[in-house]
Design a protein around this nucleic acid. Sequence first.
DNA 1: GGATATACCTTATCTGTCAAGGTATATCCT
DNA 2: AGGATATACCTTGACAGATAAGGTATATCC
Lengths: 129, 129
Amino acid sequence: MITLPHGAADSRRKGVFRLSISADTLRGHTDTIILTQLMRGDNYGYEINKTIQQRTGGKYGFKEATLYTAFKRLEAAGLITSYWGEDGPGARRRYYSITDDGRETWEKNCREWQDTRALLDALISFEEE
Amino acid sequence: MITLPHGAADSRRKGVFRLSISADTLRGHTDTIILTQLMRGDNYGYEINKTIQQRTGGKYGFKEATLYTAFKRLEAAGLITSYWGEDGPGARRRYYSITDDGRETWEKNCREWQDTRALLDALISFEEE
DNA sequence: GGATATACCTTATCTGTCAAGGTATATCCT
DNA sequence: AGGATATACCTTGACAGATAAGGTATATCC
């Protein structure tokens, strides 16, 4: 789900010998990350992904298949809508727009992230009683 | 992956209309959570799960199928070993023990969790430039 | 005209989760 | 003695999300 520069794809193939858990660690946050970008205004897939890459110092970015799967999922759920951009220079662009339902879901997911973060902090760190 | 008291299972069936994202949010941390418990010493499945439930105020716990799938995965990866406990009162117990590789993986996963947490904080919150 | 960057999309496959079943033992209550 | 309950482990089948590997099309640069 998330681009890792070196050998990450191979690490998934063997299953039990994962060299990185980043992919599964971020699983489940794809939709919220995309919704966050759309909270800033309408945007198209390629640009959204580039922004995410920039914001993480070029370390992370969605695989295209993941990105477009997520767009379809979000649109089917009524959380975003889409439209073709006006013909301009370069390839055509499909723009996405967050709906009111999307904004509600985004807020709910943000609150959930706070809870989940606290929960994992408690479960993953090793401390004596 | 994680027990939610009311209707969480149903929320997964529809796919796009998830009532809760907790399950997918925690996906990928199962192994690390189990390894954390085993860092405290050898333990068996049922007890590990009860401890997790207690530590989260009874709100979360692994589904049994998830738990035993994870044990198998971890053992196949050489991160844990297992042995049958001595016959005592109650049902037989299979104890799990973390290996040196498991300890290394646990430490790596903990560091990754720190990184991932910071990354998601940056990607999920909505802030102006 | 070829390389490169942009921009979108589909299909098949893999993995983790988990609902729904199962088995077996020990204790408590009547 | 018999039933309920708690403990404890396990398997199978189905599903959703991620993504490798393919594809199409347009515009710019050399």
